[in-house]
Design a binder for these strands. Sequence first.
DNA 1: TATGAATGAGGATTCATTCAT
DNA 2: GATGAATGAATCCTCATTCAT
Lengths: 199, 199, 199, 199
Amino acid sequence: MKNVVREPSQKRSIEKKNKIIQAGYELFSEVGYYGTNTAEIAKRAGVSTGIVYGYFQDKRDILICVLEVYIEKAFDPLIKMFDKLSAPIKFNDLVPKIINAVIKTHKQNKKMHEALHSMASTDEAVNSEFIALEDSITVKLAEQLKKLGVSIENPMEKIHFAMDIIQSFSHEYVFDKHEYIDYDVMREMVVTTIIKMFE
Amino acid sequence: MKNVVREPSQKRSIEKKNKIIQAGYELFSEVGYYGTNTAEIAKRAGVSTGIVYGYFQDKRDILICVLEVYIEKAFDPLIKMFDKLSAPIKFNDLVPKIINAVIKTHKQNKKMHEALHSMASTDEAVNSEFIALEDSITVKLAEQLKKLGVSIENPMEKIHFAMDIIQSFSHEYVFDKHEYIDYDVMREMVVTTIIKMFE
Amino acid sequence: MKNVVREPSQKRSIEKKNKIIQAGYELFSEVGYYGTNTAEIAKRAGVSTGIVYGYFQDKRDILICVLEVYIEKAFDPLIKMFDKLSAPIKFNDLVPKIINAVIKTHKQNKKMHEALHSMASTDEAVNSEFIALEDSITVKLAEQLKKLGVSIENPMEKIHFAMDIIQSFSHEYVFDKHEYIDYDVMREMVVTTIIKMFE
Amino acid sequence: MKNVVREPSQKRSIEKKNKIIQAGYELFSEVGYYGTNTAEIAKRAGVSTGIVYGYFQDKRDILICVLEVYIEKAFDPLIKMFDKLSAPIKFNDLVPKIINAVIKTHKQNKKMHEALHSMASTDEAVNSEFIALEDSITVKLAEQLKKLGVSIENPMEKIHFAMDIIQSFSHEYVFDKHEYIDYDVMREMVVTTIIKMFE
DNA sequence: TATGAATGAGGATTCATTCAT
DNA sequence: GATGAATGAATCCTCATTCAT
């Protein structure tokens, strides 16, 4: 009976809810979930501590919302790109484009990406959300390929594998972790590997 | 004069320190770093809360030690495998062997793996340690290959890329996240991809 | 200028004020004063949180009003019974009738009875109200008896003592606390004791 | 696994636990359970907030302990008096003695008495404890009377009724609520009533 | 070295009350 | 009058860390 969270119908309210999510987004990015306290979120959002609990059940609820926003921000461009695909598919063009898109996303959200992934191990909901995201991307792409006449063996596995490679490469690329690695060379490897797989 | 952490010279002391690390290992695995408190660690280790701070600077220090143990446990078999390599290298045999080893490691330590990786985003030291680990593996393997007469273009990039693929695949394999994926088919892809790269 | 509480003159307003009191009545009964929050009262009353403070100074003020309603509901029947008394008074009939009335009241309002009495220790106003209630009952009954020609020694003390006994018995009877007690036997004792006192 | 409350074995610890209970006792008496906060209790007890939770599960746990102390303090004299009874029982002496004892107890603990009774309506444990207390007193006294050869009809009901009367009278007597009442006259009524019942 | 009691700052959350609309 | 969003002080409790013994 208690703790009913307002579903903001007023414009003002939605804006305020978004402000809080945005504040959470920033703070979680900067200092992580455990490094952030609700008072800080409220202050950054320009609201009182109390009202935060008018919009969210608890601190974790903010995290979940931030996660959703992140997923939308980060993966919508990709999904849209897949939607726009048209026959005949030229993997030579497509693969680099995807890689670039993923890298761009990583660059823009790298901290949040880290912060959220770091929660997946403790928080089942966060984990599921990421799994569902991978599912939807894989399935969506598989459908598109089929529709566009690309007929390959084990499409699911190939797509998933390709996405894995791209993810892991982009992560490296953005965080640029090892100085002895020429990441542009590596990028070429990724591209080549994937293209071969789909031909 | 504060915070002087004893480097235990006595056998008993070393054992005690290890017990604490072990307790930390278990607890961090089970409930994560933030879900664990030092009193619990002490209790599980069978020591007093106070003495924990005789062996470790703070809670994070335990994490670092746990991390080291993990890395040793998890990656020593791999490194040893590389040490034992002898010419001529048969990638057809080697690659599956490596994959199996990594999967085995993942299986045995999956919770700890998660827990530690989730810290890398917030804790610089943890992050560096992981980077250093990747470095050392890459470098070590590169040296070995060279020594054993394998001469390929861009060895660093290739090795690193191969390791990335294996890591990410093993992770998927162990956590078995998507039901529509046949992970044995995917494993074959990984093997084939890598072998091609090195020939 | 602050905290001016409107004395509602409009019918609608009076109804609304009563609704709030009713909601308070129910909630205080169910979960006690401290277990109830004003938002809940407002919701149950079907009004906004804000307007509650248009009709009441603060939460405690609602309590006071609830108390008044309770007293009226619970003790008016008794007072009316006293009003209707006519000579000659037959204590053999009257005493059981009073006991039944008090028990009935207790049964109908037992939760509220508890809730309010539990406030008397902390809240002076609540306490006074209860004392005043006892006063008025005692005085009223004393007057009636006198008017009806019942002349006894120490009427005030006797009446008060009788009321005390009835109160405490009714409480026991309704809450039926001890299984080894036959409350009907006890009721007889109460009746006999009181009748003897007044003859 | 968490929240294990120390059962203090050390003398110092017991003293400290008692200090906290004492502080709770005072504060609950003065401003009630809801008017007291844990920090205040700690301060009054001369300890830190933290350690309070080393000795008690939560705030309510303190209340329960305070209740036990109160019951012991308040009712042990009575119980002991009953233990010492010897044949033949002279109700003329005994009843006033009991009344005096109960009044004395009420006087010494009146605030605590109020505070605790006010919790009984919300807190089941507190309620049960009071019921159990009444049980034990009634049973104990019944046994004694039987042992000492006092054979009366409905002893349980009579004892209980007598205790009720005494309780309620003592309460009135101590709080001295109505100026038109001569409480010494009333006391005589109580005494007479009870004595008659047991003869 | 070792103990575990003690510290107290910090954090999530609630809720009576106010205020802009 | 009425709404319900907003406020922010207050509260319970936790836990990393210290310290007396």
